[in-house]
Each structure stands twice: as C-alpha cells, then as structure tokens.
Design a protein around this nucleic acid. Structure first.
Lengths: 184, 184
DNA sequence: ACCTGAACACCGTTCAAGT
DNA sequence: ACCTGAACACCGTTCAAGT
C-alpha cells in the first residue's frame, strides 16, 4: 500500500485520539500503517512538523460557519469553535497549543480574531494585544479543562472542571476591556 | 560524593539554563553529577516530578517583596514577578507552564492572585474565573515571549517580541473586566 | 515516488547488589 | 541512605539500496 501525506496525518490523528499523545510515536504510527518508520520521512520532514499538521487538521475538522454579526459576539463564536475543536480529540489542546508555541499552526483563528477586533473599531495596537490575550486565554483554559476531563475519566479526580460557563466568563472579562477601548 | 534532593534540583536547573530543556535528560543530569542515572531515582520518583521541582525552584528564586497596596496594582505586581521569574532561566516558561498543566507547581502565585482579587471585593466565582484568566494570560504571553527571544538570539528571527508593555496592556484588559465586577 | 533494512545515537525506568 | 552495574523496552532520524 502506498500512502500520501494526508493519509499519514489522518492516521496520526486516529492514533492520537485512540491512544493519546504519549503513544503517538513515529514507530507506532509506522506500525499502524504497516510500514517501516523510515518511510514516514518521505511524507514529513520530522515529528514536530507532523504534529503541526495534526494540529491544523484538528482545527480544520472543527470549522463551523460564522453566524454572529456583532464583532464581540463573533469573538465569542471564534473562541468557542477553537475550544470545541481542541476538545473533540484526545490531547487535542496540548497538540494545538504546543504547535502554536513553536510558531506553527492556529494561524486561521488568530486571523479571524484580528478581523473581528478590527471590525469593532479598535486601534491597531489593541487589536494586536487583544488577539494574543484571547488566544492565550482560550488555549490555557482549554488545556486545563481537557486535562481535568481526562483525569476525571481516568478516575483520578472527581472534581468537575470549568466547563463552557467558566470559559465564557473569562472571555467576557477581556471583552469588557476591549469594549472600553473602542474609538479610543 | 553524596547528594540530596536539593542538589539534584539545583543541578537540573543549571543544566536547563545552560543547555535548554531538550538537553535536560536524566542521563545527562546524572553525568553532570558524576553518578549513575539510576541514582537519581533515589531523590526523585520520576522525571516529571523533577521538572515540577525545577519549576517551583524557578518561581522561588524569582520571589520579591510585595509593595503595592491597591488590589489591582498587586495583581500587576504578582504577574510581573511571575513573568520575570520564568524569563530568568532558559526555557523557564515552558517548564513552569508544563508543570502547571499537569496540575503541579505554581500554587503560590495562584494563591496570591486569589487573595488580591478577594481583597478587591470580588464575588467568589469572579475570583475563581479571574485568577485562572490572569494565570493563563501570564503563562501564554511569557511562553510566547521567551520563544521569540530565544529564536531572536539564535538569529532565526529579527522581530522584537511583545515585551513588558504588551504584557501589561494584556493584563489591563482583564483588570478592566474585573474592576467592572467589584461589588457586583 | 515511495518504501525496506539496518544502523546510530540516544531515551526513562527498574532492580538486585553493594557500602 | 545513597549508589553501582546491568538490563529492559523503547525513542527519532539517517541512509544506502531496492521497485
């Protein structure tokens, strides 16, 4: 059987979701594809690049249509989509956040947030600061939430995690600050 | 030479700062101490626990006296101390953030933020949401900033990173939201 | 273009045994 | 209490060679 890059990424995402990030090794992935580990390097330059592709695939699969018209509602919509996309796959948040930390992936949500803030009439520097603050909030909250969910499902803890309400509350804190800076 | 846990943690932090997180392996650390790798497991249960201790040591070394009286100024003070502490060591942000993601470390800054928000007269649920939002902001911003700084010093990029001004601006966004909720 | 086979240079962790 | 020696069960990546 001959594979293309998309097959490798799709299989990597399946391994991630079924067995977790710590089980997603190049050797394991090769084994699942029935191929030698070295064959993977024909499709992908290294593991970090593969994980960045997996991160983008997670976000692509979570895409939803934009409905909100008001800029601040659109911010909430984009952030909620981002959160849901990451939560939809085991260790999804960690993969996406790590890729972003290394300067890869998550470019599209960032761009959508920038546009929303710009449409809101915010000055350029506030658009910059606001976009990054919102991304950090979503990433941090979702990574923490997913960790708690997975710990709970493993029976390690009974504590209910933040959930969507806490998530939106945190967002509203930043949105308050942003609304106060419209037309500043 | 016989070591105690503190020696191991201190040496781990030195290896981290001198050679980076990717070089901080149990085998390398053992080598630097002139000891077999297996000897480390007398002082520490595993690598993850060691990294959590290193994270706490980074934060402990960055401790500064509290000066601000107003609750919101104290929030800025705590967050700035946290940022500076992480930036003071190579890959410091990544180590602290990872430890926090796995539910370890960074307990003291969280507690100090909680107290500041409580002193501000915020209701309990806002204290919770606000503390986590602030931590996520500081962690996200600092990890990104340190990544950019290290990429720049490696000559990979010329772009000047966020810096302290952007950091405080992001914080102010959240503080605006919090101030609006005092006595709510 | 895509893959095999074999190797290189490593990892974290365990455990019986020593002092 | 702290450490050695040796092993177990893995890693990511490279590279000549095959089809």
């Amino acid at each position: 059987m001959r594979y293309h890059r998309d097959d490798v990424v799709a299989r990597a995402l399946a391994v991630l979701d079924d067995h977790g990030l710590e089980s997603l090794t190049m050797r394991r992935l090769a084994g699942e594809l029935g191929v030698q580990p070295s064959a993977l390097y024909h499709h992908v330059p290294n593991k970090q690049a593969l994980l960045a592709l997996v991160a983008d695939e997670i976000l692509a699969r979570g895409k939803r249509p934009r409905r909100a018209k008001r800029w601040d509602r659109r911010v909430v919509e984009v952030c909620a989509e981002l959160r849901d996309a990451m939560l939809a796959y085991r260790d999804g948040a960690e993969v996406v956040v790590t890729a972003h930390t290394f300067g890869l992936g998550a470019a599209e949500p960032a761009q959508q947030l920038r546009e929303a803030l710009r449409d809101g009439g915010l000055p350029d520097d506030v658009v910059d600061v606001g976009t990054r603050a919102l991304l950090h909030l979503v990433f941090g909250h979702t990574a923490e939430e997913q960790m708690a969910l997975q710990a709970a499902s493993a029976g390690a803890i009974e504590r209910a995690p933040g959930g969507p309400a806490d998530f939106e509350h945190g967002l509203e804190l930043v949105l308050d600050g942003l609304r106060a800076r419209v037309n500043a």
